[in-house]
Amino acid sequence: MASAEQPKPGLPTGKLNKAGLMSFLSAQGILVFFLLGMIVFSFFSEQFLSQSNIMTVVRQASIIGIIAVGVTVVIIGGNLDLSVGSMLSFSTVLVVDLHDKIGPTNAILLMFALTLMIGAVNGFLIGFLRLNSLIVTLAMLSAIQGLVLIYSGGQNVDIANQEGTWFAFFGRGYLGGIAVPILIFGLLAILVQIVMSRTGYGRRIFAVGGNPMAAVYSGIRKNWCVFSTYLISAFCVACAALVLGSRVMGSQNNVGQGYELLVLAGIILGGTSLLGGAGSIWKTVIGVLILGFIQNGLLLMGYPYYTQWIVTWVIIILAVWLDLANKRKRLLTTHS
């Protein structure tokens, strides 16, 4: 018994440097891509790295970014939210339409309340009734889009007096030289990142996404946690609607269509796993910015906007393949 081989915990000790570099490369593959892409674009367009262009890109990316922050929380908690696109249509149409009817303050408050209510419905169905999040939010995607159309009677809405309302501040305003959408995106990202990484709440969400059963066995109220992630997601959508409605000062009734997929593409590009229990807001911010820069860079190089979709596809495939090297290694080490 004395000479029995003890299982040795930990990682292999030798070749740490080389292995470290390799794992850094594969873990940060997205970042490497990002930098390479920036360099290439800056060769082809002088404008690309100019301050004003960067600001433009970030501002354009901010709506997807704001939503992506919320969806990242849902994904870390182990679920998905496909209904954010329809919710964005809903909230934008609502706030724009109500602006002239009940005034901007009331419109904003009512819009936030109703958006959160939709989030609560999602959260109730997925958190407390424990239904499959993919199908529930798919169903909600369709149902909410229907609600928007019923509400608007299929008409587009807009704000009559576009110059004379402080509502313009959220989408068009500047504060200290920085566009307000960027500020909202940045503040939200920092806030949620702090919540996820520094608070007990964030820790619980990671636990629930990582292993729901073990989270419950640790006394974590899993159902509430899942429920709350959908409130966060809805809150972020409401913020995005504020920015979008204010920037456009009007809304088509399907304005958010397809956003759920762009948001997911950004999150995946950032490297947050869809399996839950891992990921970070930073990654998502980077992923969304990559999407934005691809779009912008390709436009500046004279390619039509839809080429970014093709490039995004290719990048997702490459990212997935890079991730594979990582996973092979992980599979080996957790084999029991």
């Binding site: 990671f206 636990a207 990582g210 059963m213 073990a214 989270a215 066995y217 229990g277 957790t334």
Partner: peptide, 13 residues
């Protein structure tokens, strides 16, 4: 593994 631990989390957490 299924009920006791979040395997992807670190020891402290």
């Amino acid at each position: 593994k299924d009920q006791g631990l979040i395997l992807g989390m670190n020891c402290r957490d």
